[in-house]
């Protein structure tokens, strides 16, 4: 039987990908940011996940203003790195897991989560930067990936509560998949950042630390948090944190924190990272 063995949260700042691609990870600016992922890189080598359900948001790459799916699960075989305006990142193609992806899509729809199903898409930094952070620069990614794209660009984004409940439904779907698979779920984006307007550059360390704490200890508080609180406290792009709640919802009531990292700044953003094990 398939099972979700752990959850990972991480920011997905595009400049992190550029720093790796351009060989700048040892620069004084970047070294402390990457150091916080050394533990995870070793851990994941031992964990050897077969499949990662990777929750991310598309940044006007696969979806333009023509299509705005709230929850889109990608059920294809293969995804290429998107050209976001400076050429595609030089990373391997992402291999999907169509059997499990379709199983999750169908199960969630029967549980009244009306998922959008995607067969072909390019994947942008929201998806490839987390892979780079966990796996470095391999010739091929060492696991299959099921991209799950969430709209956090055009309002209203889904509520935190809905994201959490979707995570719970995904966990039930994975549990009912017959093949023996080691599955991880990753929630990406965040933490506090604002990329627009005169208030750009906002970082709220107190909010972020409390968010990391309660993702472990008190997710009930976070699932009730209104969008306006994210926007006021964590900046307009801090709303990406609702995606972490999909990951958290999939892990069940109690989790153990295996690893944590927090660093400011990564470009315009507060970089946060957690590794969680369901208990």
């Amino acid at each position: 039987m398939a099972r979700i063995t752990s959850g990972v949260a991480t920011s997905h700042v595009p400049a992190i990908g550029a720093a790796v691609d351009l060989g700048k990870t040892a620069d004084p600016y970047w070294a402390p940011l990457f150091a916080g992922y050394d533990w995870t890189k070793e851990w994941i080598k031992a964990e050897k996940p077969d499949v990662v359900i990777l929750v991310f948001n598309d940044h006007a790459s696969a979806f333009d203003m023509n299509l705005i799916p709230t929850f889109a699960i990608a059920c294809g075989e293969n995804y290429k790195s998107a050209d976001e305006g400076w050429g595609p990142r030089p990373v391997p193609d992402v291999k999907g897991h169509p059997d499990l992806a379709w199983h999750i899509a169908q199960s969630c729809i029967l549980e009244e989560f009306d998922m959008t199903i995607v067969n072909q898409m390019d994947v942008d930094h929201g998806l490839t930067v987390p892979l780079t952070l966990m796996f470095g620069q391999p010739e091929n990614w060492p696991c299959k990936v099921i991209p799950l794209a969430v709209n956090v660009v055009t309002y209203p984004a889904p509520t935190g509560n809905r994201c959490y409940a979707l995570g719970e439904a995904i966990a039930r779907a994975v549990d009912s998949f017959e093949e023996d698979l080691n599955v991880q779920i990753w929630g990406t984006g965040g933490m506090s950042h604002q990329l627009q307007g005169p208030r750009a550059g906002l970082i709220n360390q107190d909010f972020d630390i409390a968010y990391l704490d309660d993702l472990v200890q008190d997710p009930e508080r976070l699932r009730k948090m209104d969008h306006i609180e994210y926007l006021r406290e964590a900046g307009s792009e801090g709303i990406e944190l609702v995606m972490w709640l999909i990951m958290r919802g999939a892990l069940g009531e109690n989790v153990k924190e295996l690893h944590r990292h927090y660093h400011v700044p990564g470009s315009n953003t507060a970089v946060g990272h957690l590794v969680l094990r369901p208990e």
Partner: peptide, 22 residues
């Protein structure tokens, strides 16, 4: 995120583009 395509077309980073609004 759409305007960001213009930052990159101008060969500017997000930090460079974003800073102009502040």
């Amino acid at each position: 995120y759409f305007l960001g395509k213009l930052f990159f077309t101008d060969e500017k980073s997000f930090v460079q583009g974003v800073s102009t609004m502040t």
